[in-house]
Computed example of a mutant assay.
Amino acid sequence: MLALALILATDRELALPPTLEPALTVASRALFRVEYCSGKSQHNEDEFARRDQRYFRLSWSALQVWGAKAERDIVEEMRLHLRCGAKRRNVEIARFDAAISEAERIFEQAILPMRQGVWIGALRLCRETVARTEPALNIVDNPVLRVTLTSGTRARLATLSEKIMTGRYDSGQIALRVNGVVLSELMVYERIESAVIDLPAPTSNRPDFPALAGPLGEPC
């Protein structure tokens, strides 16, 4: 029964928070209209660029956690015949700012549990999900902490990595968090089928291996 509860909890963790996607969708459509109505004004282009970067940071962060992409729905928007003007553009800027602020709030709320422990994307590495840890050398002889996952966690990591690889990207990243801090962004080029993963070696701004391995042995 405990194992089933853990699986269901982890499956929920792999899903994009239900209120985040609609907020990002509203933001993406408003952002398109802002871009469409920017014209050739450098000031307008700069305003759009700042908002575009804000949207990209949040959607990329969501990808690194849940493997979910919030694509800007350009095809649908291109069918619109917008009557651009300063008033319309200001309305869309306000709509975008409100939607992206709400999306950022939802994102921060969703990752609150990740302030404790070790996480790869939305998967927590802990006593119930990790079978073994040991210091090792990777293929280029750099020190790593080698983590062997349980079979159930391996399957969910495979699912997460596949979600990251689905769509227009030919590569992606999974965020490695320790106590809320993103220590590394692990590159993903294909579906991860292995039960063994290598966590980056410690540096001056990362915990040492004992400090990293400790949370892996704690209960979820």
Rank of each mutant, 00 (worst) to 15 (best):
C220I: 01
A68G: 09
V34H: 08
I139T: 13
G39L: 06
V75Q: 11
R105L: 09
P207K: 01
R154N: 00
L137S: 10
I7W: 10
P219A: 10
D170A: 10
L145P: 05
R54F: 00
V178Q: 08
A62I: 03
P135F: 02
A86W: 01
L14F: 07
E218H: 07
Q116K: 13
D73M: 03
I164P: 03
E134I: 07
I174Q: 09
E71A: 14
R50S: 12
G85W: 03
A15S: 11
L183K: 08
V188D: 07
Y169V: 12
P207W: 03
E76K: 12
R177W: 03
R89V: 06
A70W: 00
A175H: 04
A30V: 01
A155S: 13
V147G: 04
R127F: 04
S59P: 00
L199T: 04
L183V: 00
I111T: 14
R156K: 15
I174E: 04
C37L: 08
E185A: 12
E45M: 12
V130D: 08
L14W: 07
K69R: 14
L145K: 07
T10R: 12
I192M: 10
F96G: 04
I174S: 07
L4R: 12
R57N: 14
G67M: 05
A110Y: 03
K87P: 01
T166S: 15
S41Q: 08
V140G: 04
Q64K: 14
L186K: 05
E102I: 00
R89A: 08
R79E: 15
S194T: 15
A201K: 12
F107S: 08
N205Q: 10
L176K: 02
L199M: 10
S194M: 03
F96D: 06
D170F: 10
C37K: 08
R79A: 15
L63N: 09
P215T: 02
F56W: 08
V181C: 01
T133N: 06
A62E: 00
D141H: 13
T148K: 11
F107G: 05
Y36W: 13
R156T: 06
T159E: 15
I106T: 14
L183N: 01
E76M: 09
G214T: 00
M1N: 10
P143E: 09
A195L: 03
V147N: 02
R115V: 00
P135S: 08
R156P: 01
E47N: 11
Q42H: 08
Y36E: 12
L58T: 04
E108M: 05
E35K: 13
E185Q: 15
M165V: 07
V181T: 13
G172A: 06
A49G: 06
S194D: 15
D11K: 10
A195C: 05
L14V: 04
